[in-house]
Structures are given as structure tokens and as C-alpha cells.
Simulated scan of single mutants.
Amino acid sequence: MKVLGIESSCDETGVALVETRPAAAPALLAHALHSQVEMHQAYGGVVPELASRDHIRRVLPLAQQVLAQAGCQLSDVDVVAYTRGPGLAGALLVGAGVACALGAALAKPVLGVHHLEGHLLSPFLSADPPEFPFIALLVSGGHTQLMRVDGVGRYEMLGETIDDAAGEAFDKSAKLLGLGYPGGPALSRLAQQGDPTAFKLPRPLLRSGDLDFSFAGLKTAVLTQAKKLGEDLDERKADLAASTEAAIVEVLVKKSLAALERQGLHRIVVAGGVGANRLLREQLNAECAKRGVRVHYPELDLCTDNGAMIAMAAAMRMQAGVERAAPRYSFDVKPRWPLDALNAAP
């Protein structure tokens, strides 16, 4: 069975084709991605209306590109999957509308997929796929969550951000340092030239006794330090970037290790855009190696939003029997949609 996946939740248009296989994980046949980063740079962030219009322009050419790469025809597609939420409402509606139109034209079933479940299951497309159960650290955009994952559709929330997420802390701190958009990767690159111990920045909720996160206070501390530096900021910018990154990563690593210990598990999955961060991978790998814990990541090109994770999540939900795609072509989207709500109804 071939599943065509469409991702359009924010500022990347992704399309992919995944094929399910008996008694084996689904295989990625082809995928293509268009990033809107260059378009949004002039505004310092994502402009929802522009994002939606660009998705309209890109999604069908990308679908044609993916089918050509896979050596398939549109008629070979058995199921069309799309991101139903969470995300920008207008952007989600583009993917949902195109997916349902394709399904209706082909008389094939469609399936709406949770964006974060796509990230969560994306490491199953890697050369080193995980096994259930595991702890998941989801660090994607405005989401920072720790979950226990016992199977497809079996998610227990252990902790989440109560204000700014890790990705937001990276982006907002970068903006304070004048690094432009997208800020997170720019801050991480600059941090490689700085001293992570140069500034003593807070590690919010590190000793709270729970598994929740809070990064708003860190952003404020970065702003305060930048103001103190004044004209010297340019000379110390790399040090402040390195100190900021070190603070975020330390919280993520220590909370993840605490989750593993409390749940008695020895496997962790890290997914979402921040999962590509070099320092996070280095420190988490080192700490987990000491404890005999396996760490799994998506391939680097699948860390950001992409169609492959949507097609994969749809395929795995159908294989696990927790959801059945149906030939229903009316649709809605869910800009806000808690991941653990999937446990209540398949």
C-alpha cells in the first residue's frame, strides 16, 4: 500500500510517498520539501497569509516531483494523508483541501494526521529505528514535551512547557541578538565560536521536581544581559549565544534523563527541529551512553517539518489498526490539538 503524505502546517511544504510492507516498517520511496524561510526573512517571522498562498503554489508540483522520483503514477496511490493539526489554520486548510480533492478524484481514502505524531514516529524512517516502549522528547516549534510511548496511539504526557518552548527560546534569543530569522540555527552556529560558561544564565525548572519546562525566564535573562553589555554586545555576542544554548540544552538533557529514570526505560527518541541541534545530540548521547540508554533521532533532513513523517504516521496508524482511512472528503483542521488526545479516539 502506497501512502502519499502532505505537510503544510507552517512554513514548509512537504510531500512524500511511503510504502507499507508486510511484517516490516514502512519504506520511504521519495520525498520533496520547499522551505519558505527566504520569503519570511524580510518580516522576521512567519506571515500566515503568505505561508498559505505559497503552499497553494507548491504542493501539486512537489507531488508530481515525488511521484516521478518514485517511478509511480498518481493512480498508484492507495491513501492520501495530510496534516490536520496543530498549526496555522490557513496553511493546514491548503494541505487538507488538496488531499481531500486528490482522494475524491482517485476514489481513494484520506487520513488526517497529527503533526506532532508525525515528528514522534519519524525516527522509524531512520537507519536505526527505535522499538516500543520509549521516552520521547518532542522539541518542535512551540512544543517541548516529554512523553512515554508504549505504541502507536499510546501516549502518556509526562511534562511539557508552561510558557515558551525550547525552539521559541532559541528563536527569540537570536532575535534579541540581532541574528535574524530563522534564529535557532543562526544562534547555534554562532555559539560554536563562543564560551558557554561566559555568562551565568538561569536553568528554569531544572530542580522543580517535575518534568515540565519553562524558557520564558531564560529569554528575559538574555535580554537583560544584552542590555548590560550595551556597545560591547557585538564583541561578546558569540559568548552570549553559547551560554544561551548551553542553558537550553542542559535543561532538555537533565529532564530527559529524569524521565527515563522515573519510567524505568532505556530508550529515548528525540524528534522535532531542535533535535538537529549539535550540542543537544552530543550531550544527550554522552549521558545516555554512561547509562546504557539507546538514543534515536530522525535523519537530519527529516528533523524539520516534512511530508515523509506525515505519510509514515498514517501508514503506522493503519498497520497498528488504531485508525482506518476512509473515502470521506469533507474535512476540518485542528490548529490546537493535544497529542495525548489521540489516545481517547482512534
Rank of each mutant, 00 (worst) to 15 (best):
L17E: 01
P204V: 00
R207T: 06
A51W: 12
A313D: 09
A258V: 08
A99F: 10
Y329R: 11
T20E: 13
A68Q: 05
L257K: 01
D54Q: 15
Y155W: 07
R291S: 10
P86C: 12
L300Y: 02
L120C: 15
H266P: 03
K255T: 08
P204F: 14
C288Q: 01
P338C: 14
L28P: 03
L120S: 10
A191I: 00
A271L: 01
D76V: 13
L146V: 04
R57T: 08
G153E: 03
L120N: 09
G5Y: 09
P346Q: 15
P327W: 05
C10R: 08
Q283K: 13
A186K: 00
L179N: 04
R148E: 13
F199D: 07
Q36F: 03
D332H: 15
D232V: 06
L206F: 00
G71S: 04
V110A: 13
A96H: 09
D234Y: 09
A169W: 05
L280W: 00
R328L: 14
N277L: 06
D232N: 12
L179Q: 03
S214V: 02
M318E: 14
L102K: 10
S52P: 09
A174C: 12
A174W: 11
A104H: 11
A271H: 01
V59W: 08
H143T: 12
P129E: 07
R291L: 15
A289M: 01
L201R: 05
L33C: 09
E282K: 07
P130E: 11
H296E: 06
A186P: 10
V222L: 04
A174R: 14
S140C: 09
L265V: 00
L116G: 02
R278V: 00
V270N: 02
R154Q: 13
G71M: 10
T13D: 04
L17V: 10
L60V: 14
K290V: 06
L28C: 12
L342K: 11
L187V: 08
A226L: 14
G5H: 07
S256I: 09
A216T: 00
M1W: 00
L206C: 01
K334Y: 13
Q64T: 04
D76I: 09
D301A: 06
